[in-house]
Amino acid sequence: MHILHISGAITLLAGSIFLVLGALGVVRMPDPFNRIQAGTKATTLGTILVMSGLGMLHPSWLPKLFILIFFIVITNPISSHVLARVMHNLQVPLWSKKDQLSEEEE
């Protein structure tokens, strides 16, 4: 019982570290497409780990946590894909190494 609690807390900690890394990626990446990449992936695994850690702490909550994980894994890629499609259709420019060297070059 005690071991289960400690491993649940450590899983929670790992999940929150991934959430921080995802948010840091959203702040640091240079253009909207890369921000979506960092935001989607890191936050998906972060949330899955937080929910699994809670499941280890409270085994009776597992069904609801499972539904939360299911919805997040399904909806998170779809919303980022829709945003990416909108940006692609409205021709948001991609970041490239050339831009940093000379602003004029296409």
């Binding site: 991934f18 890394l21 840091l24 640091r28 990446m29 240079p30 890369n34 890191a42 899955i48 970041w95």
Partner: peptide, 24 residues
């Protein structure tokens, strides 16, 4: 693949200069 993706993102985010070369 999801776990690999996360370590990939973590590696890119932590580095001082972000190692990316994006394209479609």
């Amino acid at each position: 693949e999801v776990i690999k993706a996360n370590f990939d993102v973590a590696r890119r985010v932590i580095m001082p200069t972000i190692p990316i070369n994006p394209g479609v």
